[in-house]
């Protein structure tokens, strides 16, 4: 079940967001609310600001104009942001070491005991079907395997809000199908998913709502007219 939010506030609440890049607006968003357990798909052409907005929502970019709340608290003061929310790159990077090291990495950051880390790593690897990869070097994996390990790294932490940037891009059909199933499973578990994607099958299978990004002004049209239910 998703973690309850402050006063049942939306997980994300965006209002009049505008993020400049030089003299241009890289992305803007009039209003958007995402509630716990929802899956929202960001769609639109390349360069329309989908990734930028995902990164803004994870505090990886800034400063920006407007209001962006995470569970009712301004992003800069939202302590739960780093505990609950993880952004995954289109092509995630794994750190030097084995797959096990990578899954354990973030858990060690939280100061967890070695036996807890080992148990969580194993459980996550089983859930994602990457148990056989645990001893392999993280550098020699396929795109699909890398994506699953990066997802595992986030899930092992207990993150329940996942911001995924084109998770099925550059994958073969079988890997895409496998990842869609994993993400569907996460949605069923009640995780909140915000997915930037060109993969219509993923949108159809997963998304409760779609936010369309317009290509003209490199801006997000997330006013009511821009959201196609």
């Amino acid at each position: 079940m998703p973690e309850p939010t402050l006063n049942d506030a939306p997980v994300f609440s965006l209002e009049a967001i505008s993020f400049p890049f030089g003299k241009q607006v890289a992305v803007s968003c009039d209003a958007l609310e995402i509630h716990a357990g929802e899956c929202v798909a960001f769609t639109g052409t390349n360069g329309s600001g989908k990734t930028t907005l995902l990164k803004l929502m994870n505090g990886l970019l800034g400063p920006f104009e407007g209001t962006l709340l995470f569970c009712g608290a301004p992003l800069s003061r939202a302590r739960a942001l780093r505990r609950r929310s993880v952004f995954l790159h289109q092509q995630p990077v794994l750190f030097t070491g084995t797959v096990r090291d990578n899954l354990a990495f973030a858990l060690k950051l939280r100061g967890m005991a070695a036996d807890t880390v080992a148990a969580r790593v194993l459980a996550t690897a089983r859930d994602l079907g990457i148990e056989a990869l645990l001893k392999r070097s993280a550098r020699g994996l396929s795109t699909g395997e890398t994506q699953r390990v990066a997802l595992g790294r986030a899930l092992a932490l207990g993150a329940d809000v996942l911001l995924l940037d084109e998770p099925t891009a550059a994958m073969d059909a079988a890997s895409q199908t496998a990842l869609r199933e994993i993400l569907f499973g996460l949605k069923t578990e009640g995780k909140t998913l915000v997915v930037s994607t060109h993969d219509e099958r993923l949108v159809t299978k997963l998304a409760d709502r779609r936010v369309v990004f317009s290509p003209e002004r490199n801006a997000a049209e997330v006013s009511k007219a821009g959201v196609e239910q």
């Binding site: 990164k55 994870n58 505090g59 990886l60 780093r82 505990r83 929310s85 993880v86 952004f87 790159h89 092509q91 995630p92 990077v93 750190f95 990495f105 973030a106 950051l109 939280r110 790294r153 986030a154 932490l157």
Partner: peptide, 18 residues
């Protein structure tokens, strides 16, 4: 270095020392 390393560390909640 690939900027994704730093972003990944940030999103995973690593302290500045880590």
């Amino acid at each position: 270095l690939d900027p994704r390393y730093h972003e990944t560390l940030l999103t995973l909640g690593a302290s500045r020392r880590r």
